[in-house]
């Protein structure tokens, strides 16, 4: 008999995992949907966010807070993560404006080769700056473990995971608000729908693409930053998020933000349930979900911009 409180807690774990996946996949799908570029280096931007966080948050916590200062400590971790992600913005600006822009008109193979090369270059740069050994934020790690847990359905739930859910939900609302309600967001959508017509009404497409790529880099970095504290940063940490982001955006529909949100939560919750009920399925679960969705709806659950994203 499956206890209801177990269902609740594993679902909540899945939602938290889903929000981390959405943070990563949102950048990937925005870049794909608008620039039509499949960015293979996206996972390394996630890793870079985690590594920059290790330096920034480590320094901030060491300088101003002790890990047992509760909410203040969490806010410092959050602010450090946002700062780390902000460091990714100029990286994104450079990558798009200098490296990607010259090859938009070429065959997609050029984009894949270039972004794969970027994956290797960023990984080497990380190795050069932080060294080959994993980086763990000892103070932050023990601080997060020392935080009081919250009680949900009679079970304890880590406060940091709850923070990720709250932040993930806020980012989700913010992203949808940006694309649905703001002028800039709607100009970006129009550019995604028809870049030539966007030009014909006065949109500077180059500038829009740069903005979008920097935004994608920011969210990849932010996901890495938020995911880091309870774990450790290591050189291979970009691979799994990249693969899982692909799974999420294939499920949701290539280029669809709404699809990435639904796909991420679906993968997050079902994977956590599978891990709980059939541990052997942990690795296979996301791919099994993707296979089922592709069999039922080969184009994914949602259309891209213009097909009602």
């Amino acid at each position: 008999m499956v206890a209801l409180e177990n269902v609740a807690i594993h679902t909540l774990n899945g939602v938290q995992y889903g929000f981390v996946l959405f943070l990563i996949a949102s950048g990937l799908t925005i870049i794909l949907g608008i620039l039509d570029v499949l960015n293979l280096a996206h996972g390394e931007l996630f890793a870079l966010g985690a590594y920059v966080t290790s330096s920034l948050v480590g320094a901030l916590v060491g300088a101003a807070f002790t890990p047992d200062s509760g909410l203040g400590f969490l806010l410092v971790v959050l602010a450090g993560s946002a700062l780390a992600a902000a460091v990714l913005v100029p990286v994104g600006l450079f990558l798009e404006a200098v490296l990607l822009r010259p090859i938009y008109e070429r065959d997609e193979v050029y984009q894949l080769v270039l972004t794969f090369a970027l994956l290797l270059v960023i990984k080497d740069a990380i190795k050069y700056v932080w060294g080959p050994k994993p980086v763990r934020l000892e103070g932050v790690y023990s601080g997060i473990n020392a935080l009081a847990t919250v009680s949900i359905a009679g079970r304890t739930f880590p406060t940091y995971k709850l923070l990720i859910i709250v932040v993930g939900a806020a980012v989700t609302v913010g992203l949808f608000y940006f694309f649905e309600r703001t002028k800039t967001g709607r100009i970006v959508r129009a550019t995604a729908i028809d870049r030539e017509m966007a030009t014909a009404i006065g949109v500077d497409v180059d500038r829009t693409f740069t903005l979008v790529f920097a935004m994608g880099a920011f969210f990849a970095g932010f996901a890495g930053a938020m995911a880091l504290p309870p774990t450790q940063a290591h050189l291979e940490m970009g691979a799994d998020p990249l693969v899982l982001s692909f799974v999420v955006i294939v499920i949701g529909g290539l280029g669809s933000l709404r699809g990435a949100f639904v796909g991420a939560l679906l993968v997050g919750v079902l994977t956590r349930w599978a891990t709980w009920l059939y541990p052997a399925m942990e690795l296979a679960a996301p791919f099994a979900i993707m296979a089922v969705v592709l069999l039922v709806k080969p184009e994914g659950l949602f259309g891209s911009w213009g097909e009602r994203a």
Binding site: R186, R189, A190, M197, I201
Partner: peptide, 20 residues
């Protein structure tokens, strides 16, 4: 026509005002 599908009539009219 090349309208911006997925967007409303009103948004299609306002976009050029925002850009130009």
């Amino acid at each position: 026509r090349k309208l911006f599908t997925g967007m409303t009539v009103d948004e299609n009219f306002r976009l050029p005002v925002w850009t130009a």
